[in-house]
Computed example of a mutant assay.
Amino acid sequence: MSFLQRLFSGKTHRIFKWLATDMHSHLLPGIDDGSPDMPTTLHYLTELEALGYQKVITTPHVMRELYPNKPNDIKALAAKVNEEITAAGLKIKLEASAEYMLDDGFDALLENDQLIPIANRYVLVEMSYVAPTLNYENTIFKIQAQGLIPILAHPERYNYLSMNDFERIKSLGCLLQVNLLSLVGYYGKHTQAMGQQLVQNKQASFLGTDLHHSRHLEALKGISSHSKLVRLIENTEWLNAKL
């Protein structure tokens, strides 16, 4: 039995220690469709620490119409959460970035230096689940022109994209982040198949929880029972631990 199989078998305690950092979640209280309040945020962080995460880079939505969150507001709220982390005696570290919708407001944010990059170099972006963003390839180039590296969040959840599209996106210099819960069928069989294929083909560079609510948390705890998932990911080198 391999190290990771022993780590995952029959228990949930610190099952993600090897991954070290979660770089996609919605844990800042009351700022988007994630954690509604500070007690819930602290509960989620306590549970993530118990699952083995040493760092969380939380990524609230930034959408022009629905969640027009500003960098200063995100940073100020993250500072408050860190004060509560210290007061609660948690060891987990929290940093804040954002998940940016590629909408008609994104270019202005990019041009006016209004982004909060992950680890000062990566920008997590998403598209609508209905249709791709127009000229998204050009936006990828614009992000790179600013010296940043784009990461496409949960590509497996965009039903209009094919494996050929993913290869094209990767060739443009955009990295891919797969949701852990996609790999166990949380979002459906099609999404699961696409996510697993991205991992099998070593096209994904990051894994994320995309944690929004308690149902996500309970599903994450259940990953320990998925032996096929262990075999799928144990030989893959993820960039999470380098953040």
Rank of each mutant, 00 (worst) to 15 (best):
S182C: 08
Y122C: 04
M127W: 08
L109T: 00
Y100H: 04
N112F: 09
D165V: 13
I169S: 08
I149P: 01
T139E: 01
I149E: 11
E95T: 09
H154I: 11
G105Y: 02
H154L: 07
Y129D: 01
G147D: 03
A98M: 05
D104S: 11
L102P: 05
L102N: 03
L176N: 06
I140L: 09
L180M: 12
K170V: 15
E95H: 11
V184L: 00
A119D: 15
Q177A: 00
V178M: 00
N135V: 09
V178Q: 00
R157V: 12
N138C: 10
Y158V: 06
K170D: 13
P132T: 11
N164Q: 13
L115N: 01
A153P: 07
G147C: 02
V125K: 01
F106V: 03
S171V: 07
K142A: 07
L176D: 06
D113A: 02
E95D: 14
V130R: 14
T139R: 01
A96K: 05
L134H: 12
K142S: 05
P132E: 09
S97N: 05
D165C: 10
L109H: 03
D103M: 03
Y122Q: 04
G173T: 08
L109N: 01
A108V: 06
A131S: 15
V130T: 13
D107M: 03
N159V: 12
V130C: 08
N164A: 14
Y160P: 00
L124V: 12
I149D: 03
E137V: 13
G173D: 11
Q144E: 09
Y186G: 01
L161F: 15
S162R: 09
Y158W: 12
N159D: 15
T133W: 05
T133P: 09
G173Y: 12
T139A: 00
I116R: 00
V130K: 13
R121F: 07
L183S: 01
E95L: 08
V125P: 02
S162P: 09
L115Q: 02
D103V: 08
G147N: 04
A98W: 07
S171Q: 14
K170P: 10
K142H: 07
R157K: 13
L109M: 11
E126D: 10
L109P: 02
N179K: 02
P117R: 02
E126P: 05
L102I: 13
K142R: 15
L148N: 03
P132I: 11
L102V: 11
Q177H: 08
C174S: 10
G173P: 11
M163G: 09
D103I: 07
L115T: 06
Y129H: 14
G105S: 05
N159E: 15
E137A: 13
D103Y: 02
G173F: 13
Y100P: 04
